[in-house]
Design a protein around this nucleic acid. Structure first.
Lengths: 151, 151
DNA sequence: ACTTTACCTCAATTTAGGTTTAGGTTTTAG
DNA sequence: CTAAAACCTAAACCTAAATTGAGGTAAAGT
């Protein structure tokens, strides 16, 4: 078999990389960012607990939702240190990011409406086109909703 | 008045920057990327046609929809060169990006469902959790929809 | 035993989308 | 006429999220 270190609660970096479908260098990188943790064996090689796999899966899922690594770290830092995270721990994270995702979807839908309006207006009048006014695109003045970007 | 070069079809870079709410350096940058164009006066200073304002507005709107500058350039390149773009020209661009936005919204909504499912499953079973399997997050196998990211 | 394969560190490079800095020229206002 | 404001170019720098490379060590397969 390709890798002997299986479920022994003692995973090598190459194994984790293959199982998670990320590069070894990415695991190093995540470690420097404090997103995952490892210990070293006698020969200074990284070893991981199996739950690192779920951590990485969660990191990747959050990234697809548009969450930055920095935010992901903040949230992961709320997981208990003394025990392996359980069902409720992970569920809490999901709920949090789902809220962010909902905001993002809502933002996109508002944007879509704007664009729709703009197709109608034909962008002929600079003063009336909803896409024209640089400060009116996200509509601080129009919808009271939370902004995802501040540009 | 602050700027004399007004609507003379002959706009200075600072005027355009102020009206568009972007930095002068950004206009230089956009020009190197082929997103906008200018000619030079006697003293080698940039001059713009007024429709650059709409171009920039459109660029910024597209960026908010998540379109990259590279894609934006491709689309802007389909505008006619010989005349000032008209209502239909701009409407075509809006329609195109609106479709992309729709895809993006749909993708996010699929993702949201996944996360919802994951709250239910509690992420306890590595083999059954929809967020766990690294290759199953976007669901090539699950939904036949177009993927927005290929990671 | 030996030779791949896997691993290590540290630094540099990449991409996107700009911003900043430095040093010099042009335009405008008074 | 002079000084300030605006403009010019080229290159360096910035952040995020990695990837790549160089040079060296450890572990595994035969």
């Amino acid at each position: 078999m390709a890798h002997k270190t299986l479920q022994d609660a003692n995973l090598a970096v190459g194994y984790v990389a293959k199982r998670s479908d990320v590069n070894v260098s990415t695991l190093h990188f995540y470690e420097t960012k404090g997103l995952i943790r490892s210990w070293r064996n006698n020969g200074n090689q990284r070893r991981y607990k199996p739950d690192v796999l779920r951590r990485i899966a969660v990191i990747k899922a959050a990234q697809k939702m548009g969450v930055t690594l920095e935010e992901i770290k903040l949230t992961l830092d709320t997981l208990p240190e003394n025990r392996t995270p359980n069902k409720n721990d992970w569920a809490r994270l999901s709920t949090q990011w789902q809220a962010q995702l909902d905001e993002k979807i809502a933002y996109m839908q508002r944007l879509r409406e704007r664009v729709e309006g703009c197709i109608g207006c034909g962008c002929l009048s600079m003063s009336s086109c909803p896409l024209y006014n640089p400060n009116d695109i996200l509509g601080e003045t129009h919808s009271g909703a939370v902004l995802l970007e501040k540009d």
